[in-house]
Design a protein around this nucleic acid. Structure first.
Lengths: 117, 117
DNA sequence: TGACTATATACCGAATGGAGTATATAGATC
DNA sequence: GATCTATATACTCCATTCGGTATATAGTCA
């Protein structure tokens, strides 16, 4: 059942925060590190977990590897990502993540593609 | 984060099927056994898992223990249960579960409260 | 009280998950 | 080629999960 696999990806707090940020824009590993305040190895491993299950895709841009949600998510994934966004709106943790992400976008000089939708 | 705990409950196929059936009506263990075709101990343990995390509640009715969704689910839980129902509509497994449940309801002579909403 | 029914729990083993430390890789720059 | 930066992977440890087998418990009925 694919649905259960989606929930397996959703069931860790760090992965949830990663996926939530990705609903805003594609990002690379260092952005997750800064926005979530978690060590590189932790972020990288959770991203690998999500990638191996098709929840995120990557493309390289110089030294950076840019993570994004799938171009064509399944109906189940799309529904659940929308639900995640709805739930996240009222959660302080998710809101803070977004705030830190906005600050990062404002302060850094990285190429537009990284944040491009 | 409570949200991650909800997804932990959702991330096993058997638990998903149980929760999906419960969106229809309260049920007791033997109904899950019959509708899902899984052994008693497996059902019982998953129900205990869900119960310990507040996803289901119980009341005794003679020898039966009737499981139901919480009277007042959190916003997050309500949203995700709705999402589950939406996803389940197009999934053959979930549809078959519902069919078997309907047959059970039609063929058995159990008290109305068990299936009452 | 004793048997029966529905359900729960204890215990075990295999598998997976998650965090940390250390190390490897790939591309960029000099 | 040497070095630097960003990211990934290997390894280890500990905790949790999941399934199965066996057994316990609570309520019912004779």
């Amino acid at each position: 059942m694919q649905l259960a696999e989606i929930y397996q990806c959703f069931c860790d707090p760090t992965r949830l925060r990663i996926l939530h940020l990705l609903t805003q824009s594609p990002l690379c590993v260092c952005h997750f590190q800064d926005a979530l305040g978690e060590p590189q190895v932790k972020i990288s491993k959770h991203l690998a977990y999500l990638r191996s299950r098709g929840l995120v895709q990557t493309k390289r841009h110089g030294n950076w590897i840019i993570y994004s949600l799938p171009d064509k998510p399944s109906d189940e994934l799309a529904l659940n990502l929308q639900c995640l966004q709805d739930c996240a709106q009222s959660d302080p943790m998710f809101r803070k993540d977004l705030q830190r992400l906005e600050k990062l976008k404002a302060s850094c000089c990285e190429p537009a593609e990284v944040f491009a939708k």
